[in-house]
Design a protein around this nucleic acid. Structure first.
Length: 476
RNA sequence: GGCGACGUAGCCAAGCGGUAAGGCAGAAGUCUGCAAAACUUCUAUGCACCAGUUCAAAUCUGGUCGUCGCCUCCA
């Protein structure tokens, strides 16, 4: 029985899908005005882990991740000078059109998704290709009487939505009291958010623009997720995931729009990824303290170690991202793969062994952990115990052919979640007869040095052999 | 100022009222150097601090201190 911490109710809840056996998941994807960094991908890996575990449990999963390719202002306020369009700023900086910028960073994003072995979503809808759906939603909201028009745009009147603030734990009053935003005189409340922006004031020359019943302009940034999730997944979603920074105002506003427009509950389970931190400070584009996947790989770390680090750290605790974490992940991956190699090479015998019950209990423990809000620490602990038990069986020489297959099948099943295991048996390197002669001579020579306790020379030969692809493991 | 999360060994981390899982690092050993793998054993009388509730508290309550996040674009 899968339990998930729902950020809306702030409780762990037993998961029940809207439709028996099927699950719909919507993930807030990237805004493609610059490279996504590993912190961004940690949120997508959280979704990947969820998708993979649900599939492991036998659900049919439909996963949608949007691509935000409309340039959005940093601020809805006309009064603020800090508001700039990120897409257009990038376009000027890189001397490309906004469309080129969007496609360029989208391509990079897709490449990194693949590198990190994140499962392909059902679709990656682009905001710019769903303007009509967004306009339709504004029309629906208009019918419900919750919007109003000003000289610069169309806004959602949040006083018309009782639960506004529920997700982020704010009441409207508290929001007003703690407000740090500047006041736009035309808006009824500073927290009313834009559904449509007109080409006036500093948006006069906005490059991406579309016609609408409210004049030429561009959509508000919360709208795309409401419109696209409805189109591809329906009015009530099982899961909606994203980074914790999206809770307010983005997801809060999505709820207001979708529930008002559709008259139905928008999302059953909200999941938010805690930020990863660097020296106790969150990694973010605006702080500038970020690494891209490529940056980390250029330092010599494998993509798998990045993947493993993020899926094994719990998604609701902030991960302090550093090289130690990556090194440890790599070691753990190697440990699993060494184990798999040992199993692949084991010589089976006709015998009874306890493999079946070892696998059964490991599987139970693993699922017990994962079922508890994806508690990977508990899940992993069961696997370390599992490997130890199986190795003992192997050392005692009691492994049947069936057991060997069962262990490998179990590891493969687990790999549908981890996706970092390697099942290719590492064959001894083949050498020609001449090479074999050379190697034998070197080994003889080294043994002689060892007998003489001439360790320096012996080590030199070992290094030479390793370079040739010969592994030396000294035993008594 | 408002809202929220967290503080368990050198590091990462589980635990959700019954007496501290697991991983990394470290130590000793199986083993005549060193390195690698595996295995065995060891490594927190204590869970930020102070009170309280209880037969029993890392776990519940109140307070204190500290760290971080959100409240403006960010996963």
């Amino acid at each position: 029985m899968l339990q998930i911490y729902n950020s809306l109710t702030k409780k762990k809840e037993v998961f029940k899908s809207v439709e028996e056996g099927k699950v719909s998941i919507y993930t807030c994807g990237p805004t493609v005005y610059s490279s996504s960094h590993v912190g961004n991908f940690s949120a997508f890996l959280m979704a990947d882990l969820l998708v993979r575990y649900l599939k492991y449990k036998g659900f049919e999963v439909k996963w949608i991740m949007n691509i935000t390719d409309v340039g959005h202002l940093t601020d809805d306020n006309e009064l603020s000078d800090s508001g700039e369009d990120k897409m257009e700023a990038a376009s000027k900086k890189e001397n490309k059109t906004v469309w080129e910028i969007a496609r360029h960073y989208e391509d990079l994003f897709m490449k990194d998704l693949k590198t990190l072995k994140i499962l392909p979503a059902f679709k990656y809808p682009r905001a710019t290709e769903h303007i009509e759906e967004m306009i339709d939603m504004i029309k629906l909201l208009d019918e419900k009487g919750v919007i109003y028009e000003t000289s610069d745009g169309v806004y959602f009147d949040i006083s018309k939505f009782k639960d506004y603030g529920k997700l982020s734990g704010n009441s409207l009053e508290a929001l007003q009291a703690g407000a740090r935003v500047e006041v736009n005189e035309d808006k009824k409340s500073p927290f009313d958010f834009a559904l449509w922006k007109k080409l006036t004031g500093k948006n006069e020359d906005h490059i991406m623009k579309w016609d609408s019943p409210w004049g030429t302009g561009f959509p508000g940034w919360h709208l795309e997720c409401s419109a696209m999730s409805k189109k591809y997944l329906g009015e009530t979603l099982d899961f909606h995931t994203g980074g914790e920074d999206n809770k307010f105002p983005h997801h809060e506003s999505e709820i207001a729009q979708s529930e008002t427009a559709n008259g139905k509950k928008f999302v059953n389970y909200w999941m938010h990824k805690s930020h990863i931190v660097l020296n106790d400070e969150k990694m973010s584009k605006s702080l500038g303290n970020f690494f891209t996947v490529q940056d980390v790989m250029n330092k010599g770390f494998s993509a798998d170690s990045i993947r493993f680090t993020f899926i094994t750290a719990h998604y609701r605790s902030k991960l302090n991202f550093n090289e130690d974490q990556l090194n440890e992940s790599q070691k753990t991956i190697d440990k699993f793969n060494d184990f798999i190699q040992t199993v692949l090479k084991v010589n089976t015998s006709d015998c009874e062994d306890e493999t079946a019950s070892i696998i059964k209990s490991a599987k139970q423990q693993f699922e017990k952990g994962m079922d508890d809000d994806l508690n990977m620490s508990v899940a992993l602990a069961s696997l370390f115990g599992f490997m130890k038990s199986i190795r003992k069986n192997i050392e005692s020489g009691n492994v049947s052919k069936e057991s060997k297959t069962a262990v490998l099948d179990f590891m493969k099943e687990l790999n549908s979640i981890f996706e970092v295991f390697d099942f290719d048996e590492k064959k001894e390197k083949e050498f020609s007869k001449d090479e074999q002669d050379v190697i034998n001579k070197l080994i003889e020579k080294r043994n002689k040095f060892r007998a003489e306790k001439n360790w320096a020379e012996a080590d030199k030969i070992r290094e030479e052999l390793i370079r040739m692809g010969v592994n030396i493991a000294d035993k008594k």
